[in-house]
Simulated assay, not measured.
Amino acid sequence: MNELNLTDKVAVVTGGGGVLCSAMAKGLAEQGVKTAILDLNEEAAKKVANEIETEFGVKSIGISANVLSKESLEAALELIHKELGTVDYLLNGAGGNAATATTQAEFLTEDKLDKLEDTFFGLQMEGFDKVFALNFQGTLLPSMVFAKDMLDKKDGAIVNVSSMNSYTPLTKIPAYSAAKAAINNFTQWLAVHFAKTGIRVNAIAPGFLLTNQNRFLLIDEQTGEATPRGNKIITNTPMERYGEPEELCGTVNYLLSDWAKFITGVVVPVDGGFSAYSGV
């Protein structure tokens, strides 16, 4: 069987200062991949890079970069070339939701008619646009910048981070759901567009993992107990638990590796069975 062939490759990880993407970056480092950790928060990016070098002895650099600015990403690429070399892999992990793009009510019911600000009608467009852009454009622009190295090599792989929202939208979070659905479509589109170049494009669709972006929806800040929404998620996840960030690593490593040389344009759920369960 072919080797994974990950050692000494260079991967860019956007959103790498966060809980999920730092775990995936460390999963790559464990296989010998050199990583460029990109995050809007430079301190968080450098912290993860230092942890990687200390724990795995593999070169890693932390860079402040804005995934919504092509100029910022191009500046990051220059630094990556200087410190690590040319890019082999891209993990598009930057994303998230915001309270300003979230409805208070799950359903528009009769008793909400005099409080429309808690429903779809109360969504703030500034928040909606910000969430959609961060997730979708924040995947498109890094692909535009970092895939050029792969084009020169006629080899490389991109893994986008989608979500369970992409299959069936969850209540309350229309901007995040719409953006993740767009990422699925874009993953397929770009996979076909790049199919003759040697660059593969796939995505993972994580199930429910506790993060800073969704904690306010799933855990009651006052009591520390699960919210009604959190209880619904656990009830509808056959494994009856949230996922751990490290449980995303195997799928990411596989999709980037030579083991997946004939795989492009797929979105792989990593969800404890959530997407397979009808609720009955």
Rank of each mutant, 00 (worst) to 15 (best):
E71H: 06
Q104V: 15
A101N: 08
V87S: 01
S72Q: 08
D118E: 15
L91Y: 15
A98P: 02
L90Q: 03
A101M: 12
T109A: 05
N97Y: 00
D88K: 06
E78W: 02
T100V: 14
H81I: 12
E83N: 05
A99D: 13
L79R: 11
L108S: 06
L134Q: 03
E126I: 08
T119L: 00
G93D: 13
N92Y: 12
L113W: 11
F120P: 01
A105Y: 15
L134S: 01
T119R: 05
T109S: 05
A133K: 07
G96H: 05
L90P: 04
L90G: 00
Y89I: 12
A76Y: 03
L73H: 05
E83T: 09
T109I: 14
Q124K: 15
A76M: 07
A76W: 01
D118F: 10
E74M: 04
D111N: 11
E74Q: 13
E71L: 07
G95F: 01
A98N: 04
K115H: 15
D114A: 04
M125K: 03
Y89L: 10
A133N: 13
A76C: 06
S72Y: 06
D129F: 00
S72M: 08
G96A: 06
D114C: 05
T119M: 00
V67P: 03
T102W: 00
G85T: 14
E117G: 06
L77F: 10
F120S: 03
K112E: 12
V87Y: 02
A94H: 12
Q124H: 05
T86W: 01
S72A: 08
K82I: 11
G85D: 11
A98R: 01
